Amino acid sequence: MEDNINNNDELQILEATRQLTELMIGINTQGINKIVDNDFTLTHITGHVQSKGEWFAEIETERMRYYSYKEIKTSVKIEGDKATFVGQNLLDARIWGSRNKWRLQQTMQLEKRNGKWIVLKSVATTF
């Protein structure tokens, strides 16, 4: 039974993290807001930590513009109602004027609340 629960949770986490990327591409901060925590932070490959509000403003003004992604590898580790997702994507994005196909690794911390996985924070590095 435990394996079934974890497998279902793993699928829900993969779905949520993929949805997050699709919403970024779609410039849909209202949608993103439904799957990230109020205190969500995004740490960029530069080490700069952004609050959710600051990140949303960057998306809405297209200072950060996401075009497409190709998933390379994912892993999920679940411990009770907490999880860590690690995803490697080839992300086509323009960040502060620089467009590139970034080899981006996102490490996200999630928490299950009322049966739904919420992204607490995301840390980006390159791979």
Score class of each variant (00 low, 15 high):
residue 6 N to K: 15
residue 6 N to S: 11
residue 7 N to W: 09
residue 8 N to I: 15
residue 8 N to D: 14
residue 9 D to E: 14
residue 10 E to H: 12
residue 12 Q to N: 15
residue 13 I to V: 08
residue 14 L to S: 08
residue 15 E to I: 09
residue 16 A to Y: 02
residue 19 Q to E: 08
residue 22 E to I: 08
residue 23 L to V: 05
residue 26 G to H: 11
residue 27 I to W: 06
residue 27 I to A: 13
residue 28 N to E: 12
residue 28 N to K: 08
residue 29 T to D: 14
residue 30 Q to V: 09
residue 31 G to R: 03
residue 32 I to F: 05
residue 32 I to P: 01
residue 33 N to H: 11
residue 33 N to E: 14
residue 37 D to F: 06
residue 38 N to C: 07
residue 38 N to V: 11
residue 40 F to Q: 02
residue 40 F to H: 07
residue 42 L to G: 01
residue 42 L to E: 08
residue 42 L to S: 09
residue 42 L to R: 10
residue 43 T to L: 07
residue 47 G to C: 10
residue 47 G to R: 03
residue 49 V to F: 07
residue 51 S to C: 07
residue 51 S to P: 03
residue 53 G to T: 12
residue 53 G to Q: 13
residue 53 G to K: 07
residue 54 E to G: 05
residue 58 E to P: 00
residue 59 I to T: 01
residue 61 T to A: 06
residue 61 T to P: 02
residue 62 E to M: 12
residue 62 E to G: 03
residue 63 R to W: 00
residue 65 R to Q: 14
residue 67 Y to T: 02
residue 68 S to R: 15
residue 69 Y to V: 01
residue 72 I to N: 08
residue 73 K to V: 10
residue 73 K to P: 01
residue 74 T to R: 06
residue 74 T to W: 03
residue 77 K to W: 04
residue 77 K to T: 11
residue 79 E to A: 07
residue 81 D to C: 01
residue 81 D to K: 03
residue 84 T to F: 12
residue 86 V to S: 11
residue 87 G to N: 07
residue 91 L to N: 02
residue 91 L to Q: 08
residue 93 A to W: 01
residue 94 R to I: 09
residue 95 I to D: 04
residue 95 I to W: 02
residue 97 G to R: 04
residue 97 G to V: 05
residue 97 G to E: 08
residue 100 N to K: 09
residue 101 K to T: 14
residue 101 K to V: 15
residue 102 W to H: 00
residue 103 R to T: 10
residue 103 R to S: 13
residue 105 Q to I: 14
residue 105 Q to H: 10
residue 106 Q to Y: 11
